[in-house]
Design a protein around this nucleic acid. Sequence first.
DNA 1: TCATACTTTGGAATGAGATTACAACATAGC
DNA 2: GCTATGTTGTAATCTCATTCCAAAGTATGA
Lengths: 196, 196
Amino acid sequence: MRDISDDMRERLRAASVIFAERGFDGTTIEALSETTEVPSSTLYYYFTGKEEILTFLLGDWLERTSAGVENAICGEGSAKERLAAVVTAQLDAMAKDPATCQVLLAELGRIDRLPHVAEAVRAAFHAPVAKLLADGIAYDHFRVVDIENATSMLYGAVIITGLHHVISSHGAVPAFDSTAVADSVMDLVLTGLERV
Amino acid sequence: MRDISDDMRERLRAASVIFAERGFDGTTIEALSETTEVPSSTLYYYFTGKEEILTFLLGDWLERTSAGVENAICGEGSAKERLAAVVTAQLDAMAKDPATCQVLLAELGRIDRLPHVAEAVRAAFHAPVAKLLADGIAYDHFRVVDIENATSMLYGAVIITGLHHVISSHGAVPAFDSTAVADSVMDLVLTGLERV
DNA sequence: TCATACTTTGGAATGAGATTACAACATAGC
DNA sequence: GCTATGTTGTAATCTCATTCCAAAGTATGA
């Protein structure tokens, strides 16, 4: 993949919407070319193929997401407060770029086969949660739970809830109120369903 | 789609494994034909195409899953106990047929475009959870939470945790101990992270 | 200003694979 | 045996993705 100019990066954003609407293999290079107003020969000049375009879009989004999450994880506050900040940052990234995050989740299987993207997902979604759970347990703010399972659960809860709101929003941007959803998620995660 | 004999149904199961390994569009009809030992012309006699084969496999699995879940939801016990039974049934279905459930989650985007499958997923995974949450709140066994979000969260927690174990198990059947994972999931969902 | 290197783009060629068409053969039930 | 239905091989089509190539454009430094 060659260096992508800012102009090109800008035009390519529209490609996420097409991928989200039609799925990866329902999307032809021709459709991407028309939507982005970049001729298909030019697309092939920059990218080795359709999959690399997808990789670029997801990588770009995940990089921005990671930046927000890093920021949240490094902040002040208890593990609990930082976990809330991380979840908010993740949901905020989803709300702000619903098309790309929808593609990411629609193509989970393919992503497993794209090591660069898989690693970026881990860095933006898994790792921060695992770290904060471990911190919270170590400092006695959280109960002792199975970190492996709890990490998967929290990851799943966040992305599926975000996806639900993305799909319900029919393309609005931002797709939902990330703070409100994050509050709802953290409420259940911290306190649980059961009455005390 | 024509009626599928039991013999054919049996052979087709192997197709899930190929779909899981290679993804939907990485899988050629030829590969399915070799794996299932059903000639490709015969596959086209029964199905309109590759996507209908996928629909059949997922529908078959979801039907079995729904049966188990229905059973759990109708049983004795409080909303809490029945919720645990539902989660166990869902995870058990995943553990017993890891390939099919992996395909389901790998192709989430495509499934959105297959109304029959989307509806079956709702029936097997969403609806039972939503109902039990509502019941539990109505009978004062659960705190009052936003049911829409809580349903998505629990659904996400279950499928992503199940998927994690499926992938970690590298094809073993059953892929994991569904009761143990369900206990872990229910512990967090009921009690939350926070120390009391 | 020119030469060189890189960028952009159109259009034709190639090739893989999905799907269809069709014909031959098998088999079950009547 | 007769007919409808199931089974399968082969050839023909069609839709893309991808590759090739050549003609312009453009920036840049000598």
